[in-house]
Simulated scan of single mutants.
Amino acid sequence: MGRRPKVFQEERLMAIQALIDSRGRVRVEELAETFQTSLVTIRKDLRQLEHEGRIIKAHGGAISKAAMSAHVTFEVRKTKNKTEKQQLGEKASELVAAGDVIFIDASTTTAEMCPHLRDVEQLTVVTNSIEIAYLLGTTACCNIVVMGGTVKRETLAMFDLETAASFDRWRFDKAFFGGWGYSVKDGLTDLPGIIVHQKRQIAARSLVKIALVDSSKVEKGSLDTVIPSKDLDYLITNADVEPSFLNAMQRLNTQLILA
Rank of each mutant, 00 (worst) to 15 (best):
A62T: 03
R54L: 15
G60T: 04
A67C: 12
V72S: 11
Q87R: 08
H51C: 06
E84N: 02
G53C: 12
N81C: 02
E52S: 08
T73A: 02
E84W: 01
V76N: 05
A67E: 15
I55C: 09
Q87T: 05
F74G: 01
I63K: 07
E50H: 02
K80A: 01
I55W: 09
K82P: 02
I63T: 10
K65L: 15
S69T: 14
H59S: 08
S64E: 12
A70F: 14
M68P: 05
R77Y: 03
K80S: 07
I63E: 14
R77W: 06
A62L: 10
G89R: 01
Q87N: 07
I55T: 12
E52G: 01
L88M: 04
T83L: 14
A67K: 01
K80V: 07
N81T: 06
L88T: 02
S64F: 11
A70P: 00
E50V: 09
F74H: 07
N81I: 00
I63C: 05
E75F: 11
I56L: 11
I63P: 02
A70E: 15
R77K: 05
K85Y: 00
H51E: 15
T83M: 13
A67Q: 14
K57Q: 12
G61W: 13
H71G: 04
A62S: 13
F74Q: 00
E52V: 00
V72P: 00
I55Y: 09
K57Y: 03
V72W: 04
T83R: 08
H71K: 09
G89S: 06
A58P: 09
Q86D: 10
N81R: 10
H71I: 10
K80P: 01
A58D: 15
A58S: 12
Q87S: 08
V72M: 02
A67T: 14
Q87V: 07
V76M: 02
F74C: 02
S64L: 12
K85F: 02
I55H: 08
K57E: 14
G53K: 07
M68R: 14
H71M: 04
T73F: 05
H51P: 00
G60P: 02
L88W: 00
Q86M: 12
A62R: 10
I63M: 14
I63N: 06
I63S: 06
V76W: 03
L88A: 05
R77M: 03
K65T: 09
A66C: 07
K80T: 08
Q87G: 08
E50A: 11
G60R: 02
T73W: 09
F74Y: 09
K82Y: 14
V72F: 04
A66K: 14
T73G: 04
I55S: 07
N81M: 08
K57H: 05
I55N: 10
G53P: 08
G89Q: 03
I55G: 04
M68Q: 15
G61R: 05
E75A: 07
A70D: 15
K80D: 12
L88F: 03
S69N: 13
A58R: 03
